[in-house]
Design a protein around this nucleic acid. Structure first.
Lengths: 266, 266
DNA sequence: GAGTGGTCTAGACCACTTG
DNA sequence: AAGTGGTCTAGACCACTCT
């Protein structure tokens, strides 16, 4: 028997075959290619196997192969140009959607223990600054939740979240000091599909400074976010004030598409 | 002659037809749909015309139509779910790639007059913090450019950029107080294709504070970016410190993909 | 000129949502 | 049950890059 060094395309095909399950073929191929990059088999600057090679190795149609490569491009993992080989880029570790929205999911993935101290949970008429993003009528009721978020017991962020009344009602009685709000909502059939974010730098006001053990005026990274359900209805609007020394955000952008992620500062 | 109200799909087809030129069909269709949303003909919550309607109205193949809709989804303009109609989302005004990278392009698009005051342009051995993102060998020479960036004459940002020697050489003698570095590089055949960004909040050090007319310690939004050419080679690494009251960044994210944009704060 | 990625067609079946 | 978007195939031609 002859044994020969497997080409990246063949290795990708092997991984696709091994990865059983019901995921679509283009997703399995994308994961396989991601794996080759993660494992250093394909390194920054290397060419990705061409469409033709992937078609030959996997037996998939070219359209399906291109769908997989398009996903990598959107993630900023590879770069494509017409006529030239697709090349692997230096890897900025970006995170999936859930980890940009959920403090709990993000902390766990980063290997830290997430926590929360509830400052306040009240229902009252929404002020204009929260009514607008939540698309509430004037004077409509909203739940407001203020929490100090902890990483391994250390306060790193103050979260001031507002929920439309029917959503907030689902949170009453939930364990807001340990569980994730999104897990709680998911258990009650409310799914989260997308979010808008506005990031800025502000000085800490005295109240926030006290909650975060800072001096007033110290720099905070403010992440104001609105989260939407699958039907586009707003589920939550939150203003998160992070200790400036606690996090940074990563983004990749290109002519083809951008991504954004939050990461701890080292 | 019977005249009837045109369906959104028909209006899209009309715009595709009117938009002459050599852009690919899927791009023309995406632009047409974007236009319907921009003009308020399709409003947040409305359903986008279905694949079938767009195929019928435009005469394109379904694959091409889906390519157009995928672009809108990646931009956060619409949301799709299997089985349900594609719906238009509340519109977060995001910007194309060039405006996230280029101060000049961004300022012009925002209706302000961009400017710059050059503090320093020198060539020296790169320190480790710049050598690493630029993938330079130890002790290799790099050009360092420090500028105060102005919006309508007001200082809003301090830019500390570093360039590999061959790139920086192209900037010597260029008008760095008015033109865009990227325009200068483009005129010399150097194209920019993608960028990585890391966003954080820091307190102003005394030097930066003085350049921006701030007190030391006041909050800054720091955007550290590395810009790459079409072949993935690093062209520039820059640390931009923005006055906290000058800008915010907008991002959209979903299970399908994220984008990021910078916008002035009101 | 050979090879690459970009575009496009014309079908098909399936999973899912909705009335 | 009908209609929607998601997946996939098997072709084809073109624009571009590379050597």
């Amino acid at each position: 028997m002859s044994s020969h060094v497997k080409s990246p395309a063949e290795q990708a095909a092997q991984r696709v075959a091994r990865a059983a399950g019901d995921a679509p073929a283009h997703e399995r191929l994308a994961s396989a290619l991601r794996g080759l990059i993660d494992d250093g088999i394909l390194r920054p600057g290397d060419p990705l196997p061409g469409d033709a090679a992937l078609v030959a190795a996997t037996g998939l149609a070219r359209g399906t192969v291109r769908q997989a490569v398009a996903a990598l491009r959107a993630e900023g993992l590879v770069q494509t140009r017409q006529g030239a080989r697709t090349t692997v880029l230096a890897r900025p570790r970006l995170q999936p959607f859930s980890e940009l929205v959920s403090f709990t999911a993000w902390a766990r993935q980063a290997g830290a223990e997430p926590g929360a101290r509830v400052v306040e949970l009240v229902r009252r008429p929404a002020d204009p600054a929260t009514a607008e993003p939540l698309q509430l009528a004037d004077g409509a009721l909203a739940w407001t939740l203020t929490r100090v978020r902890l990483l391994d017991g250390v306060p790193v962020m103050v979260e001031r979240a507002a929920y439309p009344e029917p959503i907030g009602d689902l949170l009453v009685g939930a364990d807001l000091e340990h569980g994730s709000v999104y897990d709680t909502l998911a258990a009650r059939g409310v799914e989260v599909a997308s979010g808008h974010h506005r990031i800025s730098a502000v000085g800490a006001d005295p109240g926030t400074a006290a909650l975060l053990n800072l001096r007033p005026g110290e720099p905070l990274l403010r992440q104001a976010r609105t989260v939407f359900g699958p039907d586009g209805a707003p589920l939550e609007h939150s203003v998160d004030d992070w200790r400036g020394d606690a996090i940074a955000l990563d983004a990749v952008n290109s002519a083809q598409g951008n991504r954004l992620a939050r990461r701890p500062r080292g």
